[in-house]
Structure formats: C-alpha cells, structure tokens
Simulated assay, not measured.
Amino acid sequence: MTVQDRAETPDHDGPRTEEPVDLKQAMIDGAGGPRGMVYSTIPVVGFAAAVPFVALSVAIGVAIAAALALGVFRMWRGEQFMSAMGGVFGVAVAGGVSAWTGSANDFFLIGIWASFVGAVVTLVSLVVRRPLTGMIWNSVHGGNRPWREDRPSLTGHDLATFALLVMFAGRFVVRQWLYLADSTTGLAIADTVTGFPLTALAAVVVVWAFRRSTKRLIKDPGAPQEGA
C-alpha cells in the first residue's frame, strides 16, 4: 500500500477523505518552508548590505553570486535543477531591471508589481463569485465538481481566496510605501518579513478550504455504496 493509498483509506471510525499527500506536499513546497525563506533571503540581504558601499553593478553581482552558490548547494543536496536554480533566474532578472534603471530600489520592483497583480486577480475572482482557490481545487479534481452550488465549500474558498488577497495586498502596500520612501534596506527587510510568514499563514487557510471541499464533494472510494 502506498502512502497516498493510506491517506485515502477509511479508518475504523468511518470513511475519511483527504487531499492526496502529493497535493498537500506541493502546497507546502510552494510556501518554501523555513529553508526556502533562507534561500530567498540571502541574495537580497547580500544586495542590500553591499549597495551602500560599492557600485550598483557590484552589488547586483554579489546577489547573483549568492543565488548561484545557493543553487549549486541545493543541487548538491539532491534537488532538481529547475527547483534549485530558479532563484538564480529571479535574482538575475531583478538585477537586470535595477541595472537598466540605475536604481537600487528597482531590484525589488518586479516583486512589488507581482504582488499588485496577485491582489487584483484574487479581488476580481471574489467579486465575480468565482474565488481563485475554488477554481484551482475544481481543476485539480477534474473540473466538473459542483463546488459553487455547495454553500460551505464556496464560503471556504471565499475565505481562502480572501487570505491570498490580504497576503498580496499587504506585500504590495508595505513594499510600495518603502519604495516611494527610497529605503533599500527597508525593502530588503520587508521582502523577508512579508515573504514566507504571510505565505505560510495563507497556505493554512487554503489547505483547510481544499480539504473541506474534498470531504464534502468527493465520495470516498472506500465508503459503502448505496444499494450495495
């Protein structure tokens, strides 16, 4: 019996339906975890620490070198290439924007506006009564589940999508304020504080909404069938 089989097998107290283990793990991996927070923070801290003392191009080089070293270390630990080296690409793009504009603060510009886009998308999905997390849950489970007709499921995804909206909006407001205040150090700190911690809190609500919909709308294959 596989791990996933055990997760979906009913216990002695009655049927139990849970999200597949691989889906829950994917959400945890998406949040990054404490180790992921460290990996994403080191290049940013290196950039912010270097830029007051060296040329902007050198500070960008410090950030890229740190990201590259971390990527090599993660590959040495057995992570796949794209997972390990994805951070290098992100830092290189951020550094390219900063080098192009000549502003150290623009190193954080992509993250700021990515948060704005995330806030707009989640807000629109709530306004049109198709919360984003519900759309994702339905897609994962075949795309034909009546989740919007089930009030508790719809409410759960309203709350989960609202949690994502708060996460994205909080990141945008704080970082944009620091960007306009011309605080590179503040942006580096905000990048850490509003990164993994907010993601982890939002992920708790999203996982809860996913599990709630699954328990209500997907029949446990181990449960007795009517008329059996």
Rank of each mutant, 00 (worst) to 15 (best):
V51P: 06
A66N: 05
G134R: 02
V58I: 15
G156H: 03
A92E: 06
A169G: 04
G96L: 03
A169Y: 06
G86S: 09
L109E: 05
A188W: 00
S153I: 00
E226Y: 10
A92M: 12
F196K: 01
P146H: 04
G32D: 00
I42W: 11
A49G: 11
I42V: 15
M37A: 11
A104V: 09
L68K: 02
K219A: 15
T184A: 14
F81C: 06
S103D: 08
P20R: 06
V124A: 09
M1W: 14
I218P: 03
W113N: 04
M37C: 06
W100I: 07
R212V: 00
N138H: 13
G143M: 06
A63L: 07
G71L: 05
A31L: 13
A59E: 10
M82N: 11
M167P: 02
A160W: 02
Q80C: 11
P131H: 06
A104N: 07
I218W: 04
M85D: 12
V38R: 02
T101W: 14
L56F: 05
A99P: 01
F172H: 12
G33T: 09
I218Q: 00
D11A: 10
T199F: 04
S183L: 05
F172E: 00
N144F: 15
A99L: 11
A169R: 00
N138F: 08
S57A: 14
L23F: 13
G71F: 01
A55V: 14
P34E: 02
I64G: 10
T133A: 04
V205P: 00
A190S: 05
G87C: 11
A55G: 15
K215R: 15
K24A: 13
G95R: 09
W147Y: 08
V51N: 12
D29L: 11
V62M: 06
L109F: 15
G102I: 12
A67K: 08
V44F: 06
G143R: 08
